[in-house]
Measured scan of single mutants.
Amino acid sequence: EEEEKKKEEIARLLGVSKEDVERILKKNNLDIEQLLRRVQREN
């Protein structure tokens, strides 16, 4: 699934687990696209 791939990509870029990414998304109330763009910009 596309969303899972995005979570895995974010996890890889941040050096965290996919579960961490899911927690970040919930905690910050971000959607996956916003987080992915933010992470890609910083790297």
Rank of each mutant, 00 (worst) to 15 (best):
E1K: 12
E1G: 11
E1A: 13
E2L: 09
E2P: 08
E2S: 11
E2D: 12
E2G: 11
E2W: 12
E2C: 06
E3A: 13
E3V: 13
E3Q: 12
E3L: 13
E3H: 12
E3F: 13
E4R: 07
E4N: 10
E4C: 08
E4F: 05
E4M: 08
K5A: 14
K5Q: 12
K5V: 11
K5E: 10
K5Y: 10
K5N: 11
K6M: 15
K6C: 09
K6A: 11
K6S: 06
K6H: 08
K6V: 12
K6Y: 09
K7I: 11
K7Q: 03
K7D: 01
K7Y: 06
E8V: 10
E8Q: 12
E8W: 12
E9L: 15
E9H: 12
E9A: 09
I10M: 03
I10N: 00
I10C: 10
I10Q: 00
I10A: 10
I10D: 00
I10K: 00
I10F: 02
A11F: 01
A11P: 00
A11Q: 03
A11T: 02
A11N: 00
R12G: 07
R12H: 08
R12K: 10
R12S: 06
L13W: 07
L13M: 08
L13P: 00
L13I: 14
L14T: 02
L14M: 12
L14D: 00
L14E: 00
G15K: 09
G15V: 02
G15H: 09
G15W: 03
V16H: 01
V16E: 01
V16L: 10
V16Q: 03
V16R: 03
S17A: 07
S17Q: 07
S17L: 07
K18S: 06
K18G: 04
K18R: 09
E19A: 14
E19G: 10
E19T: 11
D20P: 00
D20Y: 13
D20L: 10
D20K: 10
D20V: 15
D20S: 09
D20G: 04
V21N: 00
V21E: 00
V21P: 00
E22W: 03
E22L: 05
E22A: 06
E22P: 02
R23H: 11
R23F: 11
R23Y: 13
I24V: 04
I24Q: 03
I24M: 11
L25W: 01
L25T: 02
L25S: 02
L25Y: 01
L25P: 00
K26N: 08
K26T: 11
K26Y: 10
K26P: 00
K27R: 13
K27F: 12
K27M: 13
K27Y: 12
K27W: 10
K27P: 01
K27D: 15
N28F: 15
N28T: 15
N28W: 15
N28P: 03
N28H: 15
N28C: 14
N29F: 07
N29Q: 09
N29D: 09
L30Q: 05
L30I: 12
L30A: 05
D31V: 04
D31C: 05
D31Y: 03
D31T: 15
D31F: 03
D31P: 05
D31S: 15
I32G: 02
I32D: 01
I32S: 07
I32T: 12
I32R: 01
I32C: 05
I32F: 03
I32V: 15
I32W: 04
E33Y: 05
E33V: 04
E33W: 06
E33M: 05
Q34I: 08
Q34E: 15
Q34M: 07
Q34G: 09
L35P: 00
L35D: 00
L35I: 02
L35V: 03
L35S: 00
L36D: 02
L36N: 01
L36I: 04
L36G: 01
L36Y: 13
R37M: 12
R37S: 13
R37G: 11
R38D: 15
R38K: 15
R38M: 15
R38P: 02
R38E: 15
V39A: 11
V39N: 01
V39Y: 04
V39Q: 01
V39F: 04
Q40I: 09
Q40N: 08
Q40D: 04
Q40P: 02
Q40A: 04
R41Q: 15
R41N: 13
R41Y: 10
E42I: 09
E42F: 07
E42H: 13
E42T: 07
N43I: 14
N43Y: 14
N43L: 15
N43G: 10
N43W: 12
N43H: 14
N43P: 07
